[in-house]
Design a protein around this nucleic acid. Structure first.
Lengths: 244, 244
DNA sequence: TAATACTGGGTACTGTCACTATCCAACGCC
DNA sequence: GGCGTTGGATAGTGACAGTACCCAGTATTA
């Protein structure tokens, strides 16, 4: 098919497809003449994937590129691939970043104090460590998600939201249950498939989880106060003009 | 305190604080003279909150503004506030958006077909509906998270990732457990607090959940293949140069 | 054969975002 | 009374994700 058909089938405009081609996100079609190239089903799939990653996850194209590279040149080792995927997805945390921001204290200490740790040095991630060990998992400061957890917990703290062991256990148990389900699928795959699945899975199951959590909230609130969410709230929570 | 001290305490530069003031994200300090204003603890808290929202969630400032407005002018009704919060957080989905993209089929049908539904019309969200009803929750196409779920499931589909009832049940149960924990906290709050908590909670607990899921994956994989993740993977999953 | 429409490929431009930079006059403290 | 700091404003920056435009070669049609 030609580029215009590719555009039609994927809902992505021709100029944007050209842009993706230029950026190397999309392979060139098979050139049949100086101004003619043929695109196939694999191009459709690729564009769909890019769309899913940008539309659903709002990922910057640079990260989409990272993820596509992981899928195109799999690392064979799912742990490796997942680590890379985790690094490619928000929240983006540089290795020592979470610990660096530590210095912002009400007392107003010298920031130079905590910066004595070099970026390459092992950092402690105290909040993440406590949660991880509480859940019986092994604490590994080099696993990207560890820094992400620390940053997230620091965010909670700065916003004054509660975080305690009971909560950590509940959250951890829930996510372990989810993860078990996902890894059941992986076990039956070839390494190649597993890599692709773990990378895309991290990118695309997460929004599902979050949406379900938000739906669960609504559902539970309705159960708590039936009738309160009948007419009033709906009208306001889903404003008719989408421009809102 | 003066603006320079506010900057010091929060780790945000003075020009950036000025920018936040201009943008109305931050209240002006109490003016004591034409070129003098006094900032207080509430300003420190506000800046911390903005930082948490932008750094942890990578939210665009416009969304941060929405969220701050929700907290400043609470709707009294937590359901209302949560709906608004859900709308303010990624994945950003316009009400009819998920259903619109439906038209992108391999067969290549006329897009005009599905576009006969007007943006204000009720849309079906078939994937979301099935999942929601499977979990025994009430399907409400006007709840923002419904559209978000549909978009997320559509993303899975486009990427060719598995999604079935068993998975939906497992995910749903996990998130219901999390949601129950969170609402336990809310029940003991004043409406004011509840609003603030539900808004911030949606914004800031989500990254925690995702980080835990990623950690759980790693942990489970290590249990499956002990030793495989000892030296090799770590070195590569956490590249020493943060520029990666 | 000629006119027309559509490519592939390239360069240059646009709008948005989240800051930065720079300026200025008015403090305030020493 | 001099000098650094502040509030307030205007303008500029760099990254990002496309868009617009142009050209010449190709396919289709007249």
């Amino acid at each position: 098919m030609r580029i215009s058909e590719l555009a039609e089938r994927t809902g992505v405009s021709v100029p944007t497809l050209k842009f993706y081609l230029r950026e190397g996100l999309l392979d060139k079609g098979e050139t049949t003449a100086a101004t003619r190239a043929e695109y196939g089903a694999e191009h459709v799939d690729r564009v769909r994937l890019i769309s899913a990653l940008t539309a659903v996850r709002e990922l910057p194209l640079a990260r989409v590129r990272d993820i596509l590279r992981l899928i195109d040149h799999p690392a064979d080792d799912p742990v490796l691939a997942m680590g890379a995927a985790v690094s490619a997805l928000p929240p983006y945390v540089l290795p020592a970043d979470a610990a660096m921001r530590e210095s912002a204290d009400p007392a107003g200490p010298e920031p130079a104090d905590t910066r004595t740790r070099e970026p390459g040095d092992p950092v402690r991630y105290p909040r993440a460590r406590r949660a991880i060990e509480l859940l019986g998992m092994e604490f590994d400061p080099n696993w990207p998600a560890t820094a992400q957890l620390e940053a997230a917990l620091l965010g909670l703290e700065q916003a004054g939201l509660p975080w305690d062991d009971a909560r950590a256990k509940r959250y951890g148990a829930a996510m372990l249950s989810v993860a078990k389900q996902e890894l059941k699928t992986i076990a039956a795959m070839t390494p190649q498939q597993a890599v692709s699945y773990s990378v895309l899975g991290t990118a695309l199951y997460e929004p599902v989880l979050l949406a379900l959590r938000r739906l669960a909230h609504r559902s539970l609130i309705d159960q708590m106060a039936p009738g309160a969410a009948d007419a009033g709230p709906d009208a306001a929570t889903a404003p008719s003009p989408p421009a809102g």
